[in-house]
Design a protein around this nucleic acid. Sequence first.
DNA 1: CTTTGGATCGTCT
DNA 2: GACGATCCAAAGG
Length: 194
Amino acid sequence: MARATLAADPLEVAPFLLGKLLVHGRREARIVEVEAYRGESDPASHAYRGRTARNATMFGRAGLLYVYFTYGMHWCANVVCGEQGAAGAVLLRALEPVAGLEEMTAARAARRRPGSALRERDLCRGPGNLTVALGITKQHDGVDLCDPASPVRLLDDGAPVVEAGRVASGPRVGIKRAIDVEWRFWVAGSRYVS
DNA sequence: CTTTGGATCGTCT
DNA sequence: GACGATCCAAAGG
């Protein structure tokens, strides 16, 4: 995907990312839910108090993958956006599985109680779940999603979402600061949103 | 369907 | 030393 389209305000990039494809090997999934984090001007952002070892990738160029660890057991994936040094990012919250469903199911099942039911709609539902399904971990922090040689990539197959008027929005979840703004975006009507 | 408690550890105060 | 950009399963309605 073109890097130039990501070098903008996270509030613009977030809805634009809906419908795009995240690819890792044979595993492919379509983005259906995201949240915008505006960096140093956003009290809920990891970058609000400036640059640290953990959030360093957020300060890099647009198109990088920012992966962080939280709650002692979950990895979350973000698309870095904005101008160089702006520390904007878009958190991926839910994806619609497209290809490699067997690999995704195996990866998810390995972390669950044996025999518990796992439906297709839940494979990539939730920020901590989609990274497991796609096999994204700390080692992918800083990977360039726009580089054809990268293991993890962002592709645009032209599926219309914004163009079709299918964008819904609401407050971000799981945060305690800046809960008044509606910076969470999802594909209206999609059963894969969280 | 909703609510609730437990798991688990890197990061920053 | 406290707290997360969370998830799961069990229990109750």
